[in-house]
Amino acid sequence: MPRRIPRIQKAAGFRFSPVYLLYAVMTILALLWLSPVVWSLVASLRPLNDPFYSGHIWFGKSLAVESYLKAFRLAPFGRYYVNTVMQVVLILGVQLVFSSLAAFAFARYRFRGDRVLFMLILTQMMIPTSALLVPNFQTIRWLGIYNTILAIAIPFWGSAFGTFLLRQAFLAVPSDLGDAAEIDGCSWYQMLFYMYLPSAMPSVTAFAISSISWHWNDFLWPLIVTQSDKVRPITAGLVRFTQLGEIGAQWALLSAATMIVTLPLLLMFLKFQKRFIEGYLHSGIK
C-alpha cells in the first residue's frame, strides 16, 4: 500500500503535460493545414499586376477583387456550380439508396456466400478509378448518354465504401432489437427506415460528406465524358488556371479560382465537421 502513493503523485505531477503536448502538436498541424488556405485567400485579394517576389508573397499594395472578376470572366463558374451541385446530388442520392439496402442485407441477414459477396464489394475499393477510364467510357457510349450529367454520375452509383461504412454502423444495432421489431410485425423496409438508418445517422453523414467532397473534386472522368460547358463541373473551371505552365504561375488568379471552387465545400465541412468525425469514430470502433 505505501508503495502506491509515490506512483500516484508521480502520475498526478505529469498528468496534464501529455495533453498539452497533444494540443501543441495538434495546433501545429492545424496551422500547417490552414496556412495554404489562408495564403490563397490573401493572395487572391492582391491586385493582378502586383508582382509576387521573394520575401513578398503575402499582402500586396492594396486589396482588390480583380482576380475574382477575371476568373469569372475566363470560366463560366455560375453554370459550373449548378452542374456540380446536380452531379453531386445525383450521385449521393442513388448511392445512399443502394448502399443502405446492401448494407442492411449484409448486417441483418445470413445467406449463402454473403461473406464472399461482401469481400467482393470491398475489393472494388482497391481498383483505382483511372484504370476503369476506358471500359467506363465504352459503357457510357453504349448507353448513349455521352455529354450528360448522368454520364458523370452513373459509374459511382454503387459505392463499396458506403456499403462498408453503413454495414459497420448497422452491425451496432443489437439484433435482438430487430427480432423484437419483426415479432411486432415490422416489415424489413420499416425496420431499415425507422430503426437502422436513424441510429446510423453519424455514418450516413460521414459518408455523405466524403462522397460530396470526392465528387466535388473529381476532374478527369467528367472531363472525358463531357464536351460542353453546359454539363461540366466546377473543376473544369479550375483547370483553366492551374495549367498556365507556359506563362509561369499566376498566383493571384489561381488563388481566386481555388477559393471559388473550394470555399463552398470548406464552409460545408466546417458546419458538419462534428458529425463527420463522429461518423468515422463509430465505424472505427466496431
Binding site: V134, F137, L223, I224, V239, R240, Q243, G245
Partner: peptide, 21 residues
C-alpha cells in the same frame, strides 16, 4: 471542346480512341 491542360487533351484523345468512340 475545352479539354483541360495539354496532358488532359492527350488523355481524352487516348480514351476516346481506345474506347472506340
Amino acid at each position: 471542346v475545352f479539354s483541360g491542360g495539354y496532358t488532359d487533351v492527350k488523355t481524352a484523345i487516348q480514351t476516346s480512341i481506345e474506347g472506340g468512340g
